[in-house]
Design a protein around this nucleic acid. Structure first.
Lengths: 288, 288
DNA sequence: CACGCGGTGGAACATTTTTTCCATTTATTT
DNA sequence: AAATAAATGGAAAAAATGTTCCACCGCGTG
């Protein structure tokens, strides 16, 4: 699966050749081994100093292993890092190429498995980048709320629907702001202090959701935003902001990570409520 | 709380000031947030290109936030990285945050990451066990249908909602069977030959959904079932059956795999219908 | 012990990268 | 609609960084 990066290969070659290296170059080798992860951000000078040698020794080292100079060798480590840091990027590319090489129609299953792969990468990213402190805050806020309003429109509506459904299994009063009958305003009217609004929105942000957030703040309700980034209009109007980056394959935005996050949020909340609120009947099953 | 690195502080300041930033600098801000982890290894030029702006815009950005230039700002991210990579620090940090979490009860983030893991395993299974022939059949059936009815109750309702939303981007007539006003029967009445019903249901199976499937068959509409297993009541009443096994954690059933499968289904369908699904349909009023 | 050879470090050189400056375009205000 | 301010992009200047050259050194060998 994980193909040996060129950086790995290089480190092996270095280990191989180590014994036969002159004293200073051995020093460089040791330093590289020791600080492998930070080579990519260091200057020749810093590495040279760290290894206790002259800068030119580092360059000679790189050249000894077949690179034109230090820069070229450093690029190997940089690439290895960026490849590891953005795993989903390569998947997006592959999906795109599957689509573009549409020689005689792509089998649906092919599309499906690419899509699933992309979603998997999305979850990896979610796991890696989840802000634990904020997540905790989100759970605490919901736990403290009396009424919970849930709102998302269009693409995010399904998610809102789910959250509202799940929360019905708690003792909270839950209000799904659906806009049914054009009654957004009316459904939001009763928010107040001690309540919380969960707002799910992605660009281009629905104005209904933004409106709901403003109303919530005016009414001193806590606002939990689930969105893509700290930037953008939601940040200003939210007390807590949970980020989900959905990979968009096929020029089509995923929702699996968002769904996963929301479920995790609910599970964590349910767990917290059962621990702190004794009277919560343990139900175990939340099936359909 | 966890140590607030200067990089974190900077990102906050950026989020704060974002709205008031000129267009290009907003682009830079977005890029920084999106690629926060790799800023430290990138050149101004690369960042500029990534953000779609001129290099000098990136420098101006840095200066706007109080740095002498890009290099100085980049150093902030570099430092944050090396600090995090240095073992002693991160270890202390981890201990501290664990203690803090214990003090506040249950570490919500712990639950979250376990849940995400479970979901990920669910996707692995989905990828491994997807029946390609059936999936293709499902896509073909939907492609051939004139009207598509979508039905799921309780836990599955959010999924049904999503499918119905997504399908609105095709030329098909789509009917979400919501049961609003207790009108399941009435909403199902008009199904007929040439139509298709997508029924999503998991044990314990909702009787409303089973009913819908029977009606569909009586009316000679195709039935696509999305469920857990080939056995059980849905098998009998469906023409095509797609299996999703959700991993469960904390005695709580996931939905991410189902969501993923449904999205994959839609993408494959859209592709078959040769639709271009625009990611950001800016239609003013109806954006999400 | 002198010779040569590879290793080493200083400094000049070359290259890349960043930053500044300014002309031009674009938005905002009166 | 004109005036003013702000934003943008190109290019030159400046700085930082990497590389090469070469004199020197130390060690092993003849």
């Amino acid at each position: 699966m994980a193909k040996r990066s060129e950086a790995d290969a290089l480190m092996s070659r270095i280990a191989e050749a180590f014994e036969a290296l002159p004293r200073q170059l051995q020093g460089v080798a040791r330093y590289l081994e020791e600080h492998r992860s930070s080579i990519m951000v260091q200057r020749v000078g810093e590495i040279a100093e760290g290894a206790g040698v002259h800068a030119s020794a580092v360059v000679r080292f790189a050249q000894r292993f077949g690179y034109s100079g230090f820069s070229e060798m450093q690029a190997v480590f940089r690439d290895a890092f960026t490849a590891a840091a953005s795993p989903s990027h390569s998947y997006k590319q592959r999906i795109r190429s599957v689509i573009e090489n549409r020689a005689g129609g792509v089998p649906a299953a092919e599309i499906a498995s690419r899509f699933i792969d992309a979603s998997r990468m999305g979850l990896d990213e979610l796991a890696a980048e989840l802000d634990e402190a904020r997540f905790q805050q989100a759970v605490d806020t919901l736990a403290a709320a009396e009424n919970i309003y849930v709102m998302g429109v269009r693409r995010s509506f399904a998610i809102a629907t789910y959250i509202a459904y799940a929360l019905q299994h708690t003792k909270k009063r839950v209000h799904l702001v659906s806009g049914l009958g054009g009654m957004f305003r009316e459904q939001l009217r009763s928010m107040g202090k001690g309540d919380a609004l969960i707002a799910i929105s992605f660009p281009p942000f629905g104005k209904e959701t933004l409106y709901a957030m403003r109303v919530a703040q005016q009414h001193h309700a806590k606002v939990l935003a689930i969105t893509e980034s700290d930037l953008g209009p939601l940040a200003r109007h939210s007390d807590i902001l949970l980020k989900v980056k959905e990979g968009s394959a096929f020029a089509f935005r995923g929702l699996t990570s968002t769904m996963c996050l929301c479920q995790a949020l609910f599970v964590a909340l349910a767990y917290k409520l059962e621990l702190t609120v004794e009277e919560t009947t343990s139900r175990g099953e939340y099936d359909d």
